[in-house]
Design a binder for these strands. Structure first.
Lengths: 218, 218
DNA sequence: CGGCCGCGTTGATCTGCCTCAAAGCGGTGC
DNA sequence: GCACCGCTTTGAGGCAGATCAACGCGGCCG
């Protein structure tokens, strides 16, 4: 969010941030239906966002880590549309929305960044819809792993070796699959030499093959 | 978009709109990858937006009608992420983005409306992810029909009797199903007395049953 | 220590939706 | 009129992924 801001603007943004909150693994950052007052920037850790059907089924709609901003879906209705849950011990800082809107009016680059975040969320959701609507299970899982890989890399971590923060069931929910299917696919990718899995730690051996599986033509 | 604006602000918004463009059925409003310069407000007709996988598979991500604003997914990357195609003869007016950002800074209610549009798009995409990831075919189709019903009603049309603008294949692509499945489900809903279908004209007879099918608890 | 519990793996079977195929139907142009 | 074409419907059979079930493993607590 602060990218490209003048020092003075940065100071104003800083001043807006009053609170930094800690959550333990499993704790709820906000619930669906709660009044929306602020966005949350993740400073440490990671969390998932889920939407719930009336009958209790849940769909994980996002997996968020350091630097991500969550809660954007609450702006329109002034209520959170989904529920955010920490996947590990996590720290976020709240960005009060009315103050942010105000600042965005005063600071064009901030306004621009805000719009970028909103728009990128839409783009991300649309790729997810492509996955869920048109891809087969193995393509989805390969895409998921590559997506994680990319995001870890952008944050300066290894792009080929990381620890999953989600259970098989959560991965399944995110990808529209059952946990058994996820587990089987991990095993298959492992046997085929594409990856190494041991519980939640994953090594990607053959990015090219994964990309091909995921439907990337590169 | 203009909701809640002062007369003077309205005039400024009006002044921004230079062009109104017409498209015939099947024509492309914009393509994925094209530079993003403007949003488009639909004044007449309807269109679909689709994302394409590298291998040519396509997923319809949205179905848009009068009053909807499309193109929001291009803001973040400055390129359109999806392709928009007219489903019938359609008129849109372009809202140049740089001008709109500028105006949004000057006119708080406009800024707010813009954010609402962006955020609602995210919310819509998330419900779609819930559908695609967790619902069965009949639930998806019931949800689709109810969604249309609601939107027609909000625009002053009948909520129980309307004409589909999409082919079975397009509905299928939107819902992550094959056209045959869509056709079969229409027939089944018809036989069960929930709806009447004749080609593309649909009457909804039993909204309550559809809602139950769709997983609404109401 | 032993028992429990959450999570993961793997096998066997089932089924909802896809695939393949054929035919109907309405509109359009010749 | 007829032929063609895009769209839709319907049937038969197959398969990817779900479901059901059993077991393994590590961590935690009494």
């Amino acid at each position: 969010m602060p990218v490209g801001l003048e020092p003075e603007a940065l100071a104003q943004l800083d001043a807006m941030i009053t609170s930094q909150t800690r959550f333990k693994k499993g704790e709820i950052l906000y619930r669906a239906g709660e009044p929306f007052t602020a966005l949350y920037a993740i400073r440490l850790g990671s969390c998932k966002t889920t939407v719930l059907a009336e009958d209790g089924r849940e769909q994980i709609t996002g997996y968020h880590m350091l630097g991500d901003i969550i809660g954007l879906d609450g702006i329109g209705t002034e209520r959170h549309a989904c529920e955010a849950i920490a996947l590990e011990d996590t720290q976020v800082c709240a960005l009060p929305w009315d103050r942010l809107e105000e600042l965005a009016r005063a600071i064009p680059p901030l306004q621009h960044n805000l719009h970028r975040f909103l728009s990128r969320d839409i783009g991300r959701d649309q790729s997810m819809m492509l996955m869920l609507g048109s891809m087969r299970a193995e393509e989805r899982l390969a895409g998921f792993l590559l997506n994680l890989s990319e995001r870890y890399q952008r944050r300066g971590y290894s792009s080929t070796e990381f620890v999953l923060r989600m259970t098989r069931e959560e991965i399944g929910s995110y990808l529209g699959l059952k946990l058994e299917t996820v587990s089987r696919l991990f095993s298959r990718f492992h046997d085929e030499g594409l990856i190494q899995v041991q519980g939640r730690s994953v090594k990607l051996f053959d990015l090219t093959a994964l990309r091909q599986l995921a439907g990337y033509r590169c």
